[in-house]
């Protein structure tokens, strides 16, 4: 089922500006960068976390560690999928005990991915704080979850699909709104 492209809602520049703003907010809210660790949720959360780390370094001159979280093993829909999704590595380079963890993902929708990510993080240790940063919040939450940092709120219908394309993965930057055909 091919998706139909409806509109581009953010361009490359817009993505950059949103991330720079979030980087500032992270520093602001946490009163600096001490103990902060960025955790990208595979797949597009990972380049977003790396970019945030870069922007924070530009502002603060501090290298924020970036971890990679694969949440496949924690998904709540494994038994309903026809075949098993491929598991990728989880790579968190530092002990997370007592740290301020910022989960990073591209789109916040039902909240189920974040739920899985929270479980996955807890299995790795006990951070002091967990926050959530997303590029797009499109609504339709199914769980009591909210983001601490949002690039842009985009009201959508359930038929629509938000596609975030990032250079590291898709060779282009921007956010598109797509639609499933009738």
């Amino acid at each position: 089922m091919a998706l139909i492209e409806k509109a581009q809602i953010i361009d490359a520049d817009g993505v950059r500006r949103a991330l720079v703003r979030i980087a500032h907010e992270i520093v602001e809210r946490n009163k600096g960068t001490e103990n902060v660790v960025l955790i990208g949720i595979r797949r597009r959360g990972v380049p977003l976390a790396q970019r945030l780390s870069r922007f924070i370094k530009e502002v603060e001159g501090v290298e924020i560690p970036v971890g990679v979280l694969d949440i496949t093993l924690y998904r709540d829909d494994l038994s309903t999928l026809a075949s098993q999704p491929v598991v990728h590595k989880t790579e968190v380079p530092v002990a997370i005990q007592g740290k301020t963890l910022i989960l990073v993902d591209d789109v916040l929708y039902t909240g189920r991915t974040v739920r899985a990510a929270l479980d996955a993080i807890i299995d790795l240790g006990r951070p002091a704080v967990i926050q959530l940063a997303v590029l797009i919040d499109r609504g339709h939450r199914e769980l009591p979850i909210r983001a601490d940092y949002v690039g842009k709120n985009v009201p959508t219908s359930k038929r629509e699909v938000i596609e975030v394309r990032l250079e590291e993965v898709d060779r282009v930057n921007g956010v598109w709104i797509m639609e499933k055909p009738e």
């Binding site: 694969d70 093993l73 924690y74 494994l78 590595k89 989880t90 790795l124």
Partner: peptide
């Protein structure tokens, strides 16, 4: 290849303090 790659991803769990995933 899929099995070998999956094992590569899962081996990390064995190094954790809490060696358990809910899958």
């Amino acid at each position: 290849q899929l099995i070998l790659e999956t094992a590569g991803s899962l081996k990390e769990i064995l190094t954790r303090e809490i060696k358990k995933v809910p899958t």
